[in-house]
Design a protein around this nucleic acid. Structure first.
Ligand SMILES: [Mn+2]
Ligand SMILES: [Mn+2]
Ligand SMILES: [Zn+2]
Ligand SMILES: [Zn+2]
Lengths: 138, 138
DNA sequence: ACATGTAATGCAACAATGTTGCAAATATAA
DNA sequence: TTATATTTGCAACATTGTTGCATTACATGT
């Protein structure tokens, strides 16, 4: 399993507490996390702006990616959670418990674009119920 | 072509200036529009909150839908811009000129969800270049 | 045309999030 | 250990989302 220091080193990024904190949080989680979920029990550990800029830095270096949901909320996940190399970023969002998962592997999307349109990347959010919530509800 | 009054009547909605303004704007546009794009030359015509609440009302009554883009910006389009009845909302967003189109018809998406997950609806945003921008760039 | 009840509006106020500039603190490499 | 470039925290401001409430407008029946 890859370590935080390796991830930072590979991108020529300095090792700072905030970067380590965020990457660790995502490494330990099997789902995507919002800024507040990441902060968890330490909401004041880093300045809001530092956290904000660190997320940008990690995204720019291809370590994490942002997932914007239909309710305007945002979650983050490690890029390593996506296996496919075809620029298809697909995610599941549970309407009940709000959990967000990166969908690895077997996703497929096809769209017929207007003439001469060029596609660079595709973002998919599937809204529904996760297994737990589906069994509890009705 | 359906008229604004018909759209409102069909949903048992009162005819107010703000509702007519928004629906008209979207009827006359072939693309999805942001709140500011909708307001156009009359940014102060309605109170910000009225505009906000009117968009919610129109969405709740199934007249328009919201499109949340990867940069957290939001656009709106008439529901009639989508032909398919399978809860697949798919959109194109030009990274250069920022135009957003509802993709009608020929889109297909398949994903293998984890066991017992239930899908209710799927939102897709394709990022790329529209025809105009693709020809101007490089 | 008018009165009436209901629904929509404008305004104030606040919350949440995004964004920048800058001086102080820190990480790395020499 | 020192030098330098980077990162941090803070203040400040922008944008957008959200609610409560008093005023105004709409649609319906008279
Ligand atoms: Mn993901
Ligand atoms: Mn659409
Ligand atoms: Zn759930
Ligand atoms: Zn374009």
């Amino acid at each position: 399993m890859i370590t935080v220091e390796e991830i930072l080193r590979k991108q020529d990024l300095r090792g700072t507490a905030c970067r380590r904190f965020i990457i660790n949080g995502l490494l330990e989680s099997d789902r995507a996390l919002s800024e507040n979920e990441l902060k968890g029990d330490f909401p004041e550990l880093f300045d809001r702006v530092t956290f904000y800029r660190t997320l940008i830095t990690l995204e720019e270096h291809g370590i994490i990616h942002k997932i914007v949901l239909n309710d305007n909320s945002v979650k983050y996940a490690l890029n390593s959670h996506h296996q496919n190399e075809n620029n298809l970023h697909s995610h599941f969002h549970c309407e009940e418990c709000d959990e967000v998962l990166c969908l690895e592997g077997k996703t497929r999307f096809e769209a017929e674009l207007p003439d001469n349109f060029v596609s660079h990347s595709v973002f998919v959010v599937i809204e529904g119920f996760c297994a737990d919530c589906a069994s509890h509800i009705k």
